[in-house]
Amino acid sequence: MLCKVRCSLRSGRRLLKYLGLQKGIRLLSYGTAAVKAEETIHPKERPCSDALTWVSDYAPCFGIHGNSVEILNTPDEFYQTLKTNFKNAKKRIVIASLYLGTGQLEQDLVNGIEYACERAKSSGNKDFEVHILLDYNRGSRGGDVSSRTMLTPLLERFEGMVQVSLYHTPDLSGYLKQYLPPKLDETVGVQHMKVYLFDDSLVMSG
């Protein structure tokens, strides 16, 4: 069963750990980009611009070499990058997104994750793990066919290897939750990260 989770400092730190964002590393990235995590640099080697130091007071900030960033210019390039790397992942897959979707393109992404899980299972790779974070309300839109139901087969087939978490904003509660209809309840607040990690490569989308 999928369950609702509320964001906390502890879960936030755990997500950063899954993303491979280690303490002492800083990153500033704009737009949709693919980043190789092993090429990150320590802030003492090349500190962030003084004009941007305030960012680290509100969110993690990670510094990287410019030549380790590849810009994905088209939606198809972005999609094919996800599809290929999900299928080829050998250590981990991490997704943090508003929702997944229910079309054939999204099913192909799920199939790629399933392929990677099946390969890890058949080869005895017990360290392989998949972590997916979606917004509860947006990920549940559609009822019988939703982002949640798209991922249910992965949970059933690969118990212990695949984890799906759903963020529910604490601002939507009480009478608001009781009376606001679907779609409109999403205006109260959603989890809207767009982060995709496969092994040591990271894709961030704007």
Score class of each variant (00 low, 15 high):
residue 168 H to D: 11
residue 188 V to Y: 00
residue 37 A to P: 02
residue 149 T to Y: 01
residue 163 Q to Y: 08
residue 151 L to Q: 09
residue 34 A to P: 01
residue 56 S to L: 05
residue 187 T to D: 04
residue 164 V to I: 15
residue 22 Q to H: 13
residue 154 L to D: 04
residue 41 I to G: 03
residue 154 L to Q: 06
residue 62 F to L: 13
residue 19 L to V: 06
residue 145 V to C: 04
residue 166 L to M: 15
residue 125 N to H: 15
residue 82 L to E: 09
residue 113 I to M: 15
residue 26 R to D: 14
residue 202 L to M: 10
residue 74 T to W: 12
residue 113 I to G: 03
residue 144 D to L: 14
residue 186 E to L: 00
residue 127 D to T: 12
residue 203 V to G: 03
residue 9 L to D: 15
residue 81 T to L: 07
residue 3 C to I: 15
residue 90 K to D: 05
residue 179 Y to V: 15
residue 29 S to C: 07
residue 172 L to R: 00
residue 52 L to Y: 10
residue 123 S to P: 02
residue 204 M to P: 01
residue 24 G to Y: 01
residue 148 R to W: 13
residue 150 M to K: 12
residue 34 A to S: 15
residue 158 F to A: 00
residue 169 T to S: 11
residue 100 L to Y: 01
residue 59 A to D: 11
residue 204 M to Y: 10
residue 176 L to K: 13
residue 153 P to T: 11
residue 124 G to E: 04
residue 184 L to Q: 10
residue 128 F to L: 00
residue 128 F to V: 02
residue 74 T to F: 12
residue 11 S to K: 04
residue 78 F to Q: 07
residue 103 G to V: 05
residue 105 L to V: 02
residue 16 L to M: 12
residue 85 N to W: 02
residue 174 G to C: 03
residue 155 L to K: 13
residue 158 F to C: 00
residue 43 P to F: 14
residue 43 P to Q: 08
residue 140 S to I: 04
residue 164 V to E: 02
residue 27 L to T: 14
residue 51 A to S: 09
residue 146 S to D: 04
residue 113 I to P: 01
residue 125 N to G: 11
residue 179 Y to E: 13
residue 112 G to P: 12
residue 23 K to E: 13
residue 143 G to W: 06
residue 21 L to K: 04
residue 53 T to V: 15
residue 143 G to S: 03
residue 129 E to D: 10
residue 14 R to W: 11
residue 34 A to M: 15
residue 86 F to Q: 02
residue 133 L to A: 10
residue 161 M to I: 09
residue 196 Y to S: 06
residue 108 D to N: 11
residue 174 G to I: 03
residue 27 L to D: 07
residue 181 P to F: 03
residue 152 T to N: 04
residue 86 F to I: 03
residue 140 S to G: 06
residue 122 S to Q: 13
residue 87 K to M: 10
residue 138 R to H: 13
residue 159 E to M: 10
residue 2 L to Y: 12
residue 175 Y to K: 08
residue 61 C to W: 13
residue 88 N to E: 04
residue 41 I to A: 06
residue 73 N to Y: 07
residue 133 L to M: 14
residue 178 Q to E: 13
residue 141 R to Q: 13
residue 75 P to D: 01
residue 135 D to V: 02
residue 73 N to C: 05
residue 193 M to Q: 06
residue 102 T to I: 15
residue 6 R to E: 11
residue 203 V to H: 01
residue 68 S to V: 14
residue 4 K to N: 06
residue 90 K to I: 06
residue 59 A to W: 11
residue 58 Y to M: 07
residue 32 T to G: 08
residue 86 F to H: 05
residue 111 N to P: 00
residue 70 E to S: 12
residue 191 Q to A: 08
residue 114 E to T: 10
residue 125 N to V: 14
residue 167 Y to Q: 08
residue 98 L to I: 01
residue 87 K to N: 09
residue 132 I to P: 00
residue 73 N to A: 12
residue 5 V to A: 12
residue 28 L to D: 08
residue 144 D to E: 14
residue 84 T to K: 07
residue 55 V to Y: 09
residue 156 E to W: 01
residue 8 S to W: 00
residue 74 T to N: 07
residue 56 S to V: 10
residue 129 E to V: 15
residue 27 L to Y: 12
residue 101 G to S: 04
